[in-house]
């Protein structure tokens, strides 16, 4: 890592850096499948992976039906949150932007509560779709509110609209769950932010959205670089700023919406990973986006593995681990790094 930091902005060093991150991600993914709160021998894990059939033993079931989907979900969700954060920070020119302050979490929560109270539905598999719809609805609402007025959806108006929508939807959720114990209990589980208890159906449900969103996101590097210079300059360079913003928000809605739907609101990743990426590769979004895409799942999976091995036979939710480990890391970046403006 030191080598990367010392040669931050030279493109020739950045491509191999990306390859190194790819290898690190593979190692962390391997850890995520082989380590956990249950003690399973390495040979047994590899045997299960090799045969890819559930022979009925608990160790095989845990490997194939719990750890593999969890790891794949962690990679996709982590990548999605990292990239969504990077795009939001770029498009709103706000270094503190992430999916949370754009109303995504509160929108998802309202829809989950609606599913529980009004429709009487239960189960993570059902909440996914309501959370997804809620996240997208909230983001559309934020964008629509920010677009009112002559100058359109400026970064400041987006931030204000996001805060207002978050507050409004948050109080709506609180109002409903105050009068409904069931909804409160169900929401509590969903709101922690966890990779536990999510299995293959959820993975296969959200994977298409996440993969499509991740591929689409890579096209935004150049336009985000333009926006970083300011809207007027971006226009002067021939960019259609309004269209860029709408498209970027669309991609973010799909990425963060699907990720939040699958795992609940996971903090820290979307906010901090883009800064880590900038720290490594400089201000060029053509590099920030792929760096975020690999760095974020490394951070998420590593935090999840830590949460799974520290308190066996119990586990800590990844949201808790990220909160505990994330804050000092973030302070370190701000204090010692060059936290460049988004």
């Amino acid at each position: 890592m030191k080598v990367l930091i010392s040669t931050p902005r030279r493109a020739p060093a950045l491509a191999p850096g990306l390859a190194v991150l790819g290898v690190v991600l593979a190692v962390v993914a391997f850890l995520s499948v082989t380590q956990g709160s249950r003690d399973i021998g390495l040979g047994e894990v590899l045997g299960a992976l090799g045969s890819w059939t559930d022979d009925g033993t608990t160790n095989t079931t845990v490997t194939l039906e719990l750890r593999v989907p969890r790891t794949l979900l962690g990679i996709l969700v982590g990548a999605a949150l990292g990239v969504a954060g990077a795009i939001l920070q770029g498009v709103t020119r706000n270094p503190l932007a992430d999916a949370g302050i754009m109303g995504i979490n509160s929108g998802a929560a309202v829809f989950v509560v609606f599913a529980i109270t009004v429709l009487g539905l239960r189960g993570v598999g059902v909440y996914v779709w309501f959370a997804f719809a809620g996240a997208i609805a909230a983001l559309i609402l934020v964008y629509a509110v920010a677009s009112l007025g002559r100058e359109g959806a400026t970064p400041v108006k987006l931030a204000l609209a996001g805060a207002a929508v978050t507050a409004g939807l948050g109080s709506l959720t609180t109002g409903i769950v105050m009068t409904n114990v069931d909804a409160l209990n169900e929401l509590r589980f969903w709101q922690v932010g966890s990779l536990a208890g999510r299995y293959a159906p959820i993975l296969t449900g959200v994977a298409p959205f996440l993969i499509a969103g991740l591929i689409a996101s890579l096209a935004f590097g150049r336009v985000l670089n333009g926006l970083a210079l300011g809207e007027d300059i971006a226009r002067g360079l021939g960019q259609r700023v309004g269209l860029t913003r709408v498209a970027a928000f669309g991609v973010v809605a799909v990425l963060a919406g699907a990720a939040t739907a699958a795992c609940g609101p996971i903090v820290f990743i979307g906010l901090v990973v883009p800064h880590m990426a900038r720290f490594l590769c400089g201000p060029d979004y053509r590099w920030i986006l792929p760096y975020s895409m690999l760095l974020a799942p490394i951070v998420l999976l590593l935090a999840d593995v830590i949460g799974r091995v520290v308190v066996p036979p119990d586990e800590l939710q990844v949201g808790v681990v990220l909160g505990l480990l994330g804050a000092p890391v973030f302070i370190g970046i701000v204090r010692y790094g060059r936290m460049s403006e988004a």
């Binding site: 956990g36 845990v62 719990l66 799974r308 066996p312 036979p313």
Partner: peptide, 20 residues
């Protein structure tokens, strides 16, 4: 054999250890 120290009403098992 290992109830939660802070909330000793329960031992918490991850789903990986459901069959402990």
């Amino acid at each position: 054999d290992a109830p939660d120290k802070g909330f000793p009403y329960w031992e918490n098992l991850s789903w990986e250890n459901a069959d402990k």
